[in-house]
Design a protein around this nucleic acid. Sequence first.
DNA 1: TGATCCCGCCAACGT
DNA 2: ACGTTGGCGGGATCA
Length: 835
Amino acid sequence: KTPLKQAATSHAVLTEIQPDCQPLTTPPKPKEILPADPWTPTSNLKMLISAASPEIRSREQRRELSNTTSEVLQAKHCLQEHLSGDEYEKSQPSRKEKSLGLLCHKFLARYPDYPSTAENNYICLDEVAEELNVERRRIYDIVNVLESLHMVSRLAKNRYAWHGRHNLPKTLQALKKVGEENKYTQQIQMIKKREYEHEFDFEGERNEETTRSFGSNEHSEMSFVELPGMEFRAASVNSRKDKSLRVMSQKFVMLFLVSTPQIVSLEVAAKILIGEDQLEDLDKSKFKTKIRRLYDIANVLSGLELIKKVHVTEERGRKPAFKWTGPEVLPNIQDTKLETTSTSSPPPISESITSKEQCSKNLFPSRGKQNFTRHPSLIKLVKSIENDRRKIQSAPTSPVKISPSTDQNLSAFPSKMAQVPAIAKHQLEGQSKKAKEMKTKLSRSALECNLSSPEVVPKPEPPRTAAPSPQSALPQPLGACPPSHGSVSPVILPHTHSGVSYAIYLHPSQAHTVTTYSPSFMLQPLPCANVTGIKSINSKVLNKVTTEEGDNQIATDDPTQSLTAKERPPIKSEASSQRCLKRPQALQENNLIKRFKSDEESLDTSLTFFPSGYLIPLTQCTHGNKAGFSNKEKAGICSLQHTTYSSPLAGVIPVTAPELKAVNIPDITPLNIMLSPTSIAAAPVLSNSSLNSSNTSPAPNPSSSVLNFTLQHVGLIPAGVQVPASPVLQHVPVSSQPENVSHSSENVSLQEEKVRKNRLRLLDRGGLSGNNFLSSLQPSVPKEPQEPQTVTENFFRTPGGPNTVSSLSANSDGTDRISQGTLYIPQRKLEVSED
DNA sequence: TGATCCCGCCAACGT
DNA sequence: ACGTTGGCGGGATCA
């Protein structure tokens, strides 16, 4: 196939495609020549020599920074140094030339990292495939992972929109958060521990136990994590089985983001990923398949320069692994900007139950253990929902707005606050709508009960701005644009704080109603993170990660740099509110019951579970597109959009009572929280934890009126009932720096800086730091040794037995403590080497 | 050899 | 019924 087509098509294509790159467009495009050859199996040389279409090349060049992987190198060579033919030692069309990594590079070269909003960068799969001379199948692989990072989103059938790295920061944050919530860190530990045990003979009981416990964790399947802006599209894509690549890719990334040395071995990753759907059965073939897939993903991620391949050498031998080289995840941005603390959030250890997790879990009761990912019945539900969503969105016709403004727009708006209203609105809409849909479709009695949304209008909410408005609290009418929300208006989102854990609870009265089941649940305190810090510290200290870098790009590769360097742009106003959606199903009592049980018990379950629902952060206005629109616009604009919002995906799924009940939101998890403020109040659980979190920002309290309104609106509470703002909410953490919070509107960069400083400060102080915290710092750490170093990994062991860990979560006092049982085992030494 | 991972069959989906 | 997506695993390459 290779040889065929080239030229003709290609340039045509180019033209079309062009839009994206600013630079490119210009030229007439010489094209003809270039395209094809290069990739043809035959020879790179040829391509190099011959064509070198200037345009493309330039593009490529600029985009490529260095990279890590050998592949990358090659790619580089090819691209950059076309002149010298020798570079290529291997000119043949060897397998490598066809590697996904290379292909990915080529693909990326076509589009700017930060496309301007103006142009819509559409991606036509067919065209791309042709141009690159690859089968479409391969393009899917690339696009799927890009999609997982929200760098592209699907518009319609053969089309995708290119967003570039604008969303990356947000996405990574979100992923990190979710990863933390899922306790990936712990899972990783678990796996390592297991291995460790294995090494020795422990096998016996201990193993079993471990395994068992481990198993319990697993499965959660969380689905695709979406970003505010892109939900729908993603959604459309989502539908299928979100099973693999996309989701897998996200999970994989999460692993990097949560692990302290930011190095993840394929083996561990595979196990964790497998674990989720099917635990224990370490089916060999399955494992193998997983690994294959991970390689695919890793190649793409490498192409994005987010990771690079390294080798970890343990006693046993050396295992392939990847090291994160992408941007540092800011703790939390946006609204949270400060809050970020997520970092601090030590969730890792603390096993607080994440509210979100819980919610999601509830959603999908999914099983306990069998292989079925979801309960069949649920699946149907889900599907139907998804379908709807899809239909709505995907309609080809539907104009998709692309990411347009995304960041830029946002940035334009001075205040985040502005977004708030929008958010609120969305939420409302979403909920109500969702409720409707649910009813309609599902007509689940149960749900209905809870959500009694009155109106079931087919066309859910026309753009009514009004919805939001009710929330008097907000300074501004929702509809209005952001303009000046001067002060910090009360942000609705509870979760925002970082570090601090929040418990979301319903007002008693409500609780009553709503939460029938879990009284106990409700108040559960969350463990905070602090403790974690300790651990992390240890590990950190102990571990030295060193990578051997190729001679070549050491500098470049250096994580530190990478972090700093690239993408910052976007950061600006990422708003982030987010919420998690949950699937309705949660309602089922069974689930609830189970949940309770588990919760009460030591949660082992909770430990590992992941949220199964879709996490859809509504948040901030979706960046760009949606966000960009002023509220008015939105309102005015098309119903379509609304639809979008409200669509199940986007929207908030009506939360059923059970979910509402007590949600603990551990750190900041914007994403998760879907429930929203609306229905819940958030209370920071621990003050001390707050300390950690550098920012303790005072959380804006949702105004009670808003809450009430919302709740009522949703039907969660009777009209008459009022939920007072709880004092708890008020609780203002002693923040070291209130300012951060308050000025959320300020420009991000500054804030970031502040945050960073704060962190440092905290550290200096000897503050506690969460793992994340440390990790975040890490980059800043002076240098990364270039020689291979040995990394020590800590394993913790729980003398008490596997469950020990989980027990942690139980603390009610809110204080975190480390479980006594947990010990860190000395450590093994690992050596990380780059290829 | 074991690590990588390309290739493309073919099922699930959408239209 | 046909086209698009994309799971999946054989088996070729690479190191």
